[in-house]
């Protein structure tokens, strides 16, 4: 530290030589004698009331064996949801739907987040007979795309639909499930599995170019992809669980 400015280092320094900040400082005035005024009293009473009310409401009479007040009980679940299994069930579907929603990001530029498409250019997925139909056709469309014109809900569309075979089985399964649930309102039969998509991929592997409308119409409207249904609760093959009650 440079001592240059420290005038007051000098013993017996005169006040004039003392440093400015010390010199210009005021004395600390003795504290004021204001008596308690109205404002703080009101504030005080208010706070005391609040605190006492708090203790009364939550203190549970200072009993040592009351642990959780009603404020911490879990929210009641809607009737019919059926306790913990319902939570698990929804959790699994949630997962698939979440995946599907993510993959649907690929489709958004054309079919829009709403699934309503763009009139004249891109067909709607909502209310379309193609999405409401069987999963066999749906998988075919996604794996290979469509060329030429296509009639959807009475309108004819001509732009091509790109193929999505580069997506994984898992992603395709999720997006089909998602579109069917979200836009076609189909709950049953449940979920398209990656195994089903895998089988379809093999089945259509001979198809080198996108489908035409006629080729697609040749696939029966309501035909579902073959393969084991999964249980929406656990994601395990559904058969075992469905049979369980019968045993």
């Amino acid at each position: 530290m440079s001592e240059k400015n420290l005038d007051y280092e000098a013993e017996g320094a005169s006040v004039v030589k003392l440093h400015d900040s010390v010199r210009r400082e005021r004395i600390l005035p003795p504290s004021g004698r204001e008596p308690l005024s109205f404002g703080p009293l009101i504030l005080g009473a208010f706070v005391l009331l609040l605190g006492a009310g708090f203790l009364g409401a939550y203190g549970n009479g200072f009993k040592d064996d009351i642990f959780i007040t009603s404020y911490y009980r879990p929210e009641p679940r809607p009737a019919g949801a059926g306790g913990d299994t319902a939570a698990a069930q929804l959790t699994y579907i949630d997962k698939v739907m979440k995946d599907g929603k993510r993959v649907y990001g690929n489709c958004v530029p054309c079919h829009q987040p709403t699934g309503l498409g763009n009139p004249g250019q891109f067909p709607p997925l909502k209310g379309s007979e193609w999405t409401a139909g069987g999963t066999h056709r749906f998988a075919a469309i996604l794996l290979k795309g469509i060329n030429g014109s296509l009639k959807v809900s009475g309108q004819t569309y001509t732009l091509p639909m790109p193929p999505w075979g580069t997506l994984s089985d898992q992603d395709l399964a999720a997006v089909i499930t998602y579109v069917r649930h979200e836009f076609a309102g189909i709950e049953e039969p449940g979920i398209v599995t990656p195994e089903m998509v895998k089988a379809a991929r093999e089945e259509f592997s001979g198809q080198a170019v996108p489908w035409t409308e006629a080729e697609l119409l040749a696939i029966p409207k309501d035909e579902m992809l073959p393969g084991a249904q999964v249980d929406p609760v656990t994601g395990e093959p559904a058969g075992e669980k469905a049979e369980a009650p019968a045993q």
Partner: peptide, 12 residues
């Protein structure tokens, strides 16, 4: 997992 009055005292 405390008796409910403990957090209540803390809050008060």
């Amino acid at each position: 997992p405390f008796p409910a009055w403990m957090p209540a005292v803390g809050g008060a």
